[in-house]
Nucleic acid binder design. Structure first.
Lengths: 349, 349
DNA sequence: CGAACGCGTGAGAGCGCTCTCACGCCGACC
DNA sequence: GGTCGGCGTGAGAGCGCTCTCACGCGTTCG
C-alpha cells in the first residue's frame, strides 16, 4: 500500500486519551460528546488529556455507529447560462456555509453537469451519505425532489418549488418585489409598462410576473400580452426580449426586467433604438447585482437578502435533520427597491 | 433515539449481498472494488445480487478501514468584496466538481468567514477528514498552506502562491495576458498607458502588474510610478484608482485594469471627467466577465479558461492524492485577448 | 437498620467494511 | 503418480467509535 504512512497521520484515538486520563473509552466519549453524566474532576482530566494529545474524533467511526454522516448535500442544478454569469450563488453558498459550520455540519457540494451526473448525484444523496439536502435553484421538471422525498431524506428547496410535494422552502418575496418595482414605474408617470419575465418553469419566473400583473391591475391598467416577453435571466435573452417588445409595442415607456442581466441586455437594445433612459423609457431590474451599478445610467433594482436566504435555508434544514421540527415550513424574506437613475420619474413620484 | 427509524434507511449490507449471491463478504468486496481476482461467474452472480438489492457501499465503514475519506476539501477564503461580485467562483467550482466526480471524490466546501472559522477549518482539514485540499484564491498572509503542508495533506493552490513552500499550483498566464493587453494598447497608438493593478499580496495582482511593465519596457517606454494605482479588484476601488491616476497624470490616454470590475469603475470616472472612450482614453479589463459586455462601450478584456482552471486543479490534486505523482507541479494556462470597442486604436493596429 | 434508588463509571458488543492469511482445488512438471 | 505452484475463495481480525447494560458506591426512605 502506497498510502500506509500517510494514513497514520492522525493516530490519536479514544483509547489513547482514555488511558492517559486513567478512565475508560466510554467516559472519554461522554466528555467529548458533552454528556452531563460525568463528574467535574473526571471531565477536567479527560479534557486535559484531549488537548495534550490533540485528539480529534474520527468522523468515519462515529458515523458508522450513529448512522449520521454529519454532512449535508447542497445541490446546484443550473443548466448553464445563469450559473456562469450570476454572482448570486457564491453569496447563497456563503450564507449556507455559515449556518452549517455553526452546527458542525459539513457542506458537500454537488453540481451535476450531465444527465448521467444527475443520476449519480441522486444515488449518492439517497444512499444515506448525507443527513439532509439543500436544493438550490430548482427547475420545474427536476426529478430530484421526488426521489429524495421518497427516500425519506430531509430536504429544503431554495425558491418556491412549482410542483414539489410538501417541501419546506425559503424564498424572497418575488411577487412583492416585482410589484413594488412596477408600482414605482407607474408612480413615475409611466403608462405603457412592459416586462421581461423569467422562465415559466421556475418559481422566481412565475412569481415575478404575477407581481407585475398585480401592480397593473391595482392601478387599473389593463394587461396586454404584447407587453410580456420571456427570457432566461441572461443578458442575451434580455436583449432578444427587448427587440420583440419594441416591435410589438413601439410606444413602451417603461420596462421591468426580472433580472439585472436581462435589464442590461434590454438597455443596450434601447440605446441602439435611440430611446433615452430614463427620459423615453424607464427601466427597473431585479437582484441588485454588480451589473446594476456598472451600466449607464445606473439601474434601479430589487434587492434581495441573498446571504440571509442561504442562512435561512440551512437553518430550516438543520432543524429538519435534528428532528426538532418535522413539519413543513415556508419562509418568505422581504425585498427592497433600490432607486437609481434608470427609472427617474416623469412627474415627481 | 429520535432517529432510530430514519437511520434504517439503507439497510443493505455487504453481508446480505454475500448471502444472496452465495459467497463470502470478502468476495463481494472484491467485486465491488473491481479486483481482478474473481472468476467471471462469481462476479456475475455478485453483480446480480448487488443490483437486485440496490446495494450501496457504506462510505463510513469503508473510510474507517482504508483511512481515506473519499473527499477533498475546497477552501475559499475571500475577505469580502471580490467573492460577492465576481462571477468567477461558480465556474471554477463547476470545473473542480466535474473532475472530482469523475474520480468519485466528494467535494467538501469550506468558506471560513471569521478568524475563528479559519482555525476550525484548519483543524478539520488537518484532522484527516479529507484526502486532499484545494486552496482557491490564496492571499499572501494566509496561514493555511503552512499548516496543511506540515500536516502532510496533499494540496494544490489556485493561482501562483507568493510564498507557499513547494506547492503544486495551476494558474493562468497572468503576466502574458496583461502583456498582450498592454501591447494591444500601444499598438493602437497610445502613448501614456496607466494601469490599475490588483492587490500586492496576491499572485494575480503581482503578475499582472509585471506583465504591464514588461510590455512597456519591450516597447521602449519608460515606466512612471504615477501611472500605477492599486485596487482590490472591486468596482469601487477601480473608480478610486482612476481618480488618483487622473490627478497624477491628466494626459493618460489608455488604462489597463487588472479586473473588469475595476475597469467598469474606472470607466464611470472617465465619463464623469468628460473623457471619451476610446477616443480620448482606451481601456482594457481582465477576466472577460459579464460586466465586460454590459458597459458602454463594450470592454476589451483578457479571457481566462476558468473552468479549465478548476478542472486542472482538481486533476493535479487527484494525482497527488492517489500518489501517482508526488512531485510538485505547475500548470500555466493560456489567456486570450477579446477585442471590443473600448480599446479601438487611434491608428490601425 | 435494611432495602431501594440514583449516580458515575466500565466492560463489551457491535456498526459495515477491507485485507491478510490460510486453505482447497486444479493443472503442470519431473 | 506425486509434488509443487498458482489461483480463487473464505474465515476472521480489526478500523475507532457509541451505547446498552451492569456494577459499585453513597444516599435516602420506610
Amino acid at each position: 500500500m502506497v498510502f500506509a504512512t500517510r494514513g497514520r497521520r492522525n493516530g490519536t484515538t479514544l483509547e489513547e486519551v482514555a488511558s492517559r486520563a486513567g478512565v475508560s473509552r466510554a467516559t472519554v466519549s461522554r466528555v467529548v460528546n458533552g454528556s452531563p453524566k460525568v463528574s467535574p474532576d473526571v471531565r477536567r482530566a479527560v479534557e486535559a488529556a484531549v488537548s495534550e494529545l490533540g485528539y480529534v474524533p474520527n468522523r468515519a467511526a462515529r458515523s458508522l455507529v450513529t448512522r449520521r454522516s454529519g454532512s449535508v448535500g447542497v445541490v446546484i442544478t443550473e443548466p448553464s447560462g445563469r450559473l456562469f454569469s450570476d454572482p448570486f450563488f457564491p453569496r447563497v453558498l456563503r450564507g449556507i456555509s455559515g449556518a452549517l459550520t455553526a452546527r458542525d455540519l459539513q457542506l458537500v457540494l454537488l453540481m451535476p453537469a450531465s444527465p448521467a451526473d444527475t443520476t449519480r448525484t441522486a444515488d449518492y444523496l439517497t444512499g444515506g451519505h448525507v443527513d439532509g439536502i439543500l436544493l438550490v435553484s430548482l427547475h420545474g421538471d427536476d426529478p430530484l425532489p421526488d426521489r429524495i422525498a421518497r427516500a425519506g431524506v430531509p430536504f429544503v428547496v431554495g425558491g418556491r418549488p412549482l410542483r414539489t410535494p410538501a417541501a419546506s422552502f425559503v424564498d424572497v418575496d418575488n411577487r412583492g418585489g416585482s410589484r413594488s418595482a412596477v408600482e414605482h414605474l407607474i408612480a413615475g408617470g409611466r403608462q405603457v409598462v412592459a416586462t421581461i419575465a423569467g422562465p415559466a418553469d421556475m418559481g422566481a419566473g412565475v412569481d415575478r410576473l404575477a407581481g407585475y400583473h398585480e401592480a397593473l391591475s391595482d392601478a387599473g391598467i389593463e394587461a396586454d400580452p404584447r407587453l410580456v416577453a420571456r427570457g432566461d435571466f441572461t443578458q442575451e435573452s434580455g436583449a432578444a426580449a427587448m427587440e420583440r417588445l419594441l416591435t410589438a409595442r413601439p410606444d413602451i415607456d417603461a420596462v421591468f426586467a426580472a433580472s439585472d442581466l436581462m435589464a442590461s441586455g434590454a438597455m443596450a437594445v434601447l440605446a441602439a433604438a435611440n430611446r433615452r433612459i430614463p427620459q423615453d423609457v424607464a427601466i427597473v431590474g431585479y437582484d441588485d447585482s454588480p451589473v446594476a451599478t456598472s451600466v449607464t445610467p445606473r439601474l434601479t433594482s430589487v434587492r434581495q437578502p441573498i446571504e440571509e436566504m442561504g442562512h435561512e435555508r440551512a437553518r430550516l434544514l438543520v432543524d429538519a435533520v435534528e428532528g426538532t421540527d418535522p413539519v413543513q415550513r415556508r419562509v418568505i424574506l422581504a425585498t427592497e427597491l433600490v432607486r437609481r437613475a434608470s427609472s427617474a420619474g416623469r412627474r415627481v413620484p
